[in-house]
């Protein structure tokens, strides 16, 4: 899947780049779904990179076919896990043992990149030094500003909060701390007046 061109938005909305190989002795790559394709391109750009890399990959619905291709890249370590939360203990251990010079590459969905970015920042890496590349689903990780619950993989605007059941309008207002966009009740002023949901970006 090619890179999606996100429309211009407000300042808090994250922007993503293209992964490029960087100098360093140790490289940590975290990807989900189609993010695997960005890692394959990264490996092609620098043949020596994968031997120094630890890949944490979450296939989700769309990535089952990539496992073999990632193995074929010959990374120093490859972990394929069922979900991002299941990968977090490993991610934290890798970061705790890492030294300055570690390069972090994040690719795949916004929810994955945002959450992994937080872990890397908490470990002391400046956020501007962490590379990201969006691939795959455009679904968003949303926080309901009313009940504070997080709903993953939101595909429509408005959507129903999976915690409190309110109909929420999808904002571009992003919280780096929560790694989530903000969802605000769409019918706050006129209860019951809920527009038909439209698919995000289409």
């Amino acid at each position: 899947m090619p890179n999606f061109e996100f429309p211009a938005s407000i300042k808090s909305r994250p922007v993503y780049g293209r992964l490029e190989p960087r100098k360093g002795k140790f490289h940590l790559m975290i990807a989900d779904g189609e993010g695997a394709e960005a890692l394959i391109e990264l490996a092609a750009a620098d043949g020596a990179l994968m031997a120094k890399s630890h890949i944490i990959y979450i296939p989700r619905d769309t990535g089952a076919g990539f496992a073999e291709k990632l193995t074929a890249l010959g990374p120093a370590q490859l972990y394929i896990g069922p979900s991002y939360p299941a990968a977090v203990p490993r991610l934290r251990r890798v970061l705790a043992d890492a030294h300055m010079g570690l390069q972090v590459y994040l690719t795949g969905t916004e929810g994955l990149m945002g959450q992994a970015m937080n872990e890397a920042m908490a470990a002391g890496i400046p956020h501007s030094a962490i590379q990201t590349e969006h691939r795959g689903s455009l679904a968003r990780r949303m926080q309901c500003v009313h009940c504070k619950g997080i709903t993953e993989d939101v595909m429509t605007d408005p959507f129903v909060c999976s915690h409190c059941g309110l109909h929420l309008f999808v904002r571009d207002h992003y919280s780096r701390r929560l790694a989530a966009f903000q969802g605000v009740r769409v019918d706050a002023e006129d209860p019951g007046n809920i527009p038909d949901p439209v698919e995000l970006y289409s």
Binding site: K23, G24, L95, H99, M100, G101, Q103, A123, G124, I125
Partner: peptide, 29 residues
């Protein structure tokens, strides 16, 4: 150096260039 280390250098130009170049080479942000 552990993750989260910041590096500071002050001295003659040759030293600053040397330290910055080595740090960049080793992947320091």
């Amino acid at each position: 150096q552990p993750l989260g280390t910041h590096l500071y250098v002050c001295g003659p130009k040759g030293m600053i260039d040397w330290v910055r170049a080595k740090a960049a080479d080793l992947g320091w942000p």
